[in-house]
Amino acid sequence: MTTFKLIINGKTLKGEITIEAVDAAEAEKIFKQYANDNGIDGEWTYDDATKTFTVTE
């Protein structure tokens, strides 16, 4: 398992979430479901060097 981080730069929600996932594809699926569940819709980026996803509304 690898640790992945999501940085949320939303209009109403900001913060960071860290999860353990098998790979970046699994982490992205989990993070996008979390964002969808919380009404966050924005532009996604991923930095493989730091294993960090960012979503900006």
Score class of each variant (00 low, 15 high):
G10R: 05
D23I: 09
Q33K: 14
E26V: 05
Q33H: 12
E43N: 12
L13N: 10
K14T: 04
T50D: 06
T45W: 07
T12V: 13
Y34Q: 03
D47P: 00
K5F: 10
L6E: 00
K32R: 05
A25D: 10
W44V: 13
E28Q: 07
G10N: 14
A25I: 02
A35T: 15
I8A: 06
Y34W: 07
E43I: 07
A35D: 00
G10C: 01
K11N: 13
Y34K: 14
D41S: 10
D47Y: 08
Y34R: 11
T3R: 05
E43T: 14
I40S: 12
D23C: 02
T50E: 06
A24T: 11
N9Y: 07
D48R: 01
F53K: 00
E26R: 02
W44D: 00
T3P: 10
T3D: 14
E20H: 02
Q33F: 08
G42C: 01
K51A: 13
D37S: 15
L13C: 02
A27P: 00
E20Y: 02
I7C: 02
A24D: 08
T18I: 07
N38K: 13
W44T: 01
F4W: 06
K51D: 02
K11R: 03
T45P: 00
G42A: 08
A21P: 00
N38V: 02
A21F: 03
I19S: 04
T12H: 15
K51L: 07
A49R: 02
D37W: 15
I8K: 01
E16S: 14
G39W: 06
T18S: 10
D37N: 15
I19Y: 14
F31M: 08
N9G: 08
D48Y: 04
Y46C: 01
I17P: 02
Q33L: 11
M1K: 05
D41A: 14
E16G: 04
T56K: 13
T54K: 07
N38P: 01
T54L: 11
D48H: 13
N9T: 14
F31E: 00
E57L: 09
G42N: 04
G39D: 03
G15F: 12
D47M: 03
K32P: 00
N9K: 12
E26S: 13
I30T: 08
G42Q: 03
A24P: 14
D47L: 09
G39F: 09
I8W: 11
A27N: 00
E20P: 03
I19Q: 06
E57C: 03
A35C: 02
T54W: 03
D41H: 14
T2Y: 12
K29E: 02
T45E: 15
V22S: 13
F4Y: 12
I19P: 00
D23T: 13
F4N: 00
M1H: 15
K14E: 02
F31R: 00
I40Y: 14
G15S: 12
A21E: 02
N36R: 10
Y46P: 00
M1R: 01
K29A: 04
I17Q: 09
K14A: 05
K32S: 11
A24K: 13
T12A: 09
K5S: 09
G10L: 12
T45Y: 03
Y46V: 02
T56S: 15
N9H: 12
T2N: 15
E28D: 09
E43W: 05
G39S: 10
I30R: 09
G10F: 05
K5H: 13
N36I: 10
N36H: 14
D47A: 11
T52V: 09
